[in-house]
Design a protein around this nucleic acid. Structure first.
Lengths: 232, 232
DNA sequence: TCAAAAGTGTTGAAACTACACCCATGA
DNA sequence: TCATGGGTGTAGTTTCAACACTTTTGA
């Protein structure tokens, strides 16, 4: 283990982001349409190179704020997903990319699709059938799988809701991410009885027709003692 | 997103390994005693720099074989753990390290402690109380947590056993990794009734006193339909 | 009064824990 | 025959899915 930099091939270190939110009952990811070669006109994940003296997580947070305008904070989750480093993944040179996964509440996002037509929120299923730039389809696939698994045993689904939400809104998050419907009665019982999952607030809210629902905020239990289950 | 290499700080990309096995009913990791500065005489994880044109996973497998003599194959598991890239994690320069987690059956390992005194299998608890080189304590901590969680819902505990094993030997793996005892009767029922977890072989084996036990091999189900549970 | 969504009750099935008990071997 | 660990039986408890039913609102 001799040292830098003589024996080393030049390697670029990049950070790519899978930013997920829920729009129109669909799990959506932020995608950027490439305007230059390689992979011109294909969709790509937002990302960029690591800066001098910058921590990996800091680079990811910086990119997230640049692309969405949302500063790192409470109604937001960001975690490292995996690192992709196949020798030929970028035709221009050797680039190792550390992928991050972020969840953002839709209510925090600017109304429009972003700056011009080159950035868009696209449903992940639609995005995955189109060919994406680089190995970004593989990154997105892994991100969606991780997300589907993670909301089972953590309270991270609450991040997709705003600061306050009803149990039905929280259930809609699970249904959008898993693509299956859940029994409203059983989900309600489970969510409200799980210690630390959600915290009841004063007041009620009506979302369309029917009886108004109680309002909750996210609880403090990051790990759920009993998982929320998908179909078996 | 202009390109390489002008705007980039020189970054070294390394691969570090957490290699786990079970010895004397203890979860043990392979550690290397550093002989040079920095962190001279501290324990470090095995690792090295990524080579030109080499995939990350290939670099990890290569390091694993170099350090343990075990070629990548059946009785072995290796997966990416996480990437560590704090700016000051290596005092000699900027190094981003992709950590991998490997499980090896003890029976595959050479009998002695390895080549000389600078490599050793140490119990993870003992290793974690001593100060390690770089941020390797953090990497090892994450590896142990991942391992403890992962054997709950996958069949990876079988990797720590040899090609064939008894249910009691498999139970001993869980007990070593979790540091708690499990009910032999209930564990036996669960392991043998789980579809695809273990496959019964002809023959029996006696491990010390008592009735000889049936012999099994690992089944094909990577994910267990119902988790093996630790104490709640 | 009706439709719709929120929320509670109930029941039968399944899974789990704890532990009693039998089986097969060596000493 | 005793000690030891392998393996099966079983009873009480807990969890869960399914769905009936009540509550609260707007139209």
């Amino acid at each position: 283990m001799l040292f830098l930099p003589t024996e080393l091939t030049p390697v670029g270190v990049a950070v790519d982001l899978v930013v997920l939110t829920i729009r129109q009952a669909q799990l959506c990811a932020l995608a950027i349409k490439r305007t230059a070669a390689p992979f011109q006109r294909r969709w790509a994940l937002p990302g960029g190179f690591l800066r001098a003296g910058e921590d990996l997580g800091a680079a990811a947070s910086r990119e997230l704020e640049e692309e969405t305008g949302v500063p790192a904070g409470q109604l937001l989750h960001i975690e490292q997903l995996a690192t992709f480093g196949a020798p030929k993944r970028d035709p221009r040179g050797r680039v190792v990319s550390v992928a991050y996964l972020a969840f953002v509440a839709a209510e925090l996002l600017p109304q429009a699709g972003g700056d011009a037509a080159h950035a868009a929120w696209l449903g992940v299923d639609a995005l995955l059938v189109a060919p994406m730039a680089f190995d970004h389809s593989a990154i997105l696939t892994m991100a969606v799988e991780r997300t589907r698994a993670k909301i089972e045993y953590t309270n991270l689904a609450t991040v997709f809701c705003g600061a306050t939400f009803t149990i039905a809104e929280l259930r809609a998050v699970y249904e959008a991410i898993w693509g299956e419907t859940l029994d409203p009665a059983n989900f309600h019982r489970k969510a409200t009885s799980m210690p630390g999952f959600v915290v009841e607030q004063v007041g009620k809210r009506q979302t369309g027709e029917g009886r108004p629902a109680r309002v909750y905020t996210a609880g403090s239990a990051a790990q759920l003692s009993v998982p929320i289950r998908r179909g078996r």
